[in-house]
Design a protein around this nucleic acid. Structure first.
Lengths: 125, 125
DNA sequence: GGCATTGGTTTCCTTTTGGAAACTACTTTC
DNA sequence: GAAAGTAGTTTCCAAAAGGAAACCAATGCC
C-alpha cells in the first residue's frame, strides 16, 4: 500500500480553513481592525474624527477602508445635512458580530504585552 | 469654551487599540492564520506536509512564515535524524493561546458563508 | 546511475499596499 | 475676501508582499 502523500484532512477542517480565509479577506489591510475597534467603542463617528482617532492613517486609506467595510455591510455611512456637511459612520448590527473576534485579539495582545515583561509566562503556557 | 478637536478617548481604549495592533503585527501576512489553523488541528506536521496542506502556499512563503512564528515562540522546529532528514513543526503551548482568536474567526467565517445564502440574516443582525 | 524526496534558499519579477501632498468643492466664520 | 473646516479624490511614488522557478545538498530506491 502506497503511502498517502496528503495528510488525511477532514471536511470539517477544510470548512474551517475556508472560513478563516473568508474572514481574513474581509478584514484584510493594515487598518480595518483598528477602525472597527474604534467604532465598536464609540458607535458613531465622523470622518474627520476617525482621521484623528486612528493614529497614522491618511484620508485616502481611511476612505478606502470605510468603503470596503460599507460594501460588506459592517459599517454605514450617513450624510447629515448640517451647515458644513458632515458624514457619520457607524458600525452595523452585523458589524458588531465581529466584536468577539476583536475582543479576543485585544485580550491576546494585552497578555502578550505583559509576557514581554515576564517572559516565563510565555514558556509555561 | 472651545470645542475639543479630538474625541475623548480613554486610556482603556488606547491600550486596547495598541493590543490589537500588537496582535495583528505578529499575525500579519496572508498565511499565518491558515498555518496556525492547520497546526492547531494536527499538533505536528513536517514541512512538506504543510506545503501540501496549506493550499496555494509556496516553499519560500511557508519557510518565512514558519521562521516568523518560531521567533515569536508560536511554533517549534525540530530536526529529526531520520534517513532523509525530516523536520517537524508543532504549535507551542503559547501558540495554543491563539486558539480562541482562531476559533472566533472560523466561527464568524462560517456564519458569513451562511449569510450569503440567506442575506436577511445579515440585515437583522 | 538516475530519479525522487526531504527541507529549504535564492533570484527575479509582478502585484499590492500604503503614504504624502495637492486638489476639489462647499460653507461658515472672522 | 481670506482662512478654516467639512469630506473626500487624485496623482505620484516607494516599499512590502508574494509567487514561480531554479537550485542545492543529502539520502533512499530500483
Amino acid at each position: 500500500m502506497k503511502k498517502k502523500l496528503s495528510v488525511n484532512y477532514s471536511e470539517t477542517c477544510k470548512t474551517r480553513i475556508t472560513a478563516i480565509k473568508d474572514t481574513m479577506e474581509i478584514l484584510s489591510g493594515k487598518w480595518k481592525f483598528h477602525i472597527l475597534g474604534t467604532l465598536l467603542e464609540t458607535d458613531r463617528m465622523r470622518f474627520m474624527d476617525l482621521l484623528r482617532e486612528v493614529e497614522g492613517i491618511g484620508s485616502k486609506m481611511l476612505s478606502k477602508e470605510l468603503q470596503d467595510m460599507e460594501i460588506n455591510q459592517l459599517v454605514t455611512r450617513t450624510v447629515q445635512q448640517t451647515k458644513p456637511i458632515t458624514v457619520v459612520y457607524e458600525i452595523t448590527e452585523y458589524g458588531k458580530t465581529l466584536g468577539p473576534i476583536i475582543d479576543e485579539i485585544a485580550k491576546w495582545g494585552i497578555s502578550y504585552r505583559n509576557s514581554l515583561h515576564s517572559p516565563q509566562d510565555r514558556e509555561t503556557a
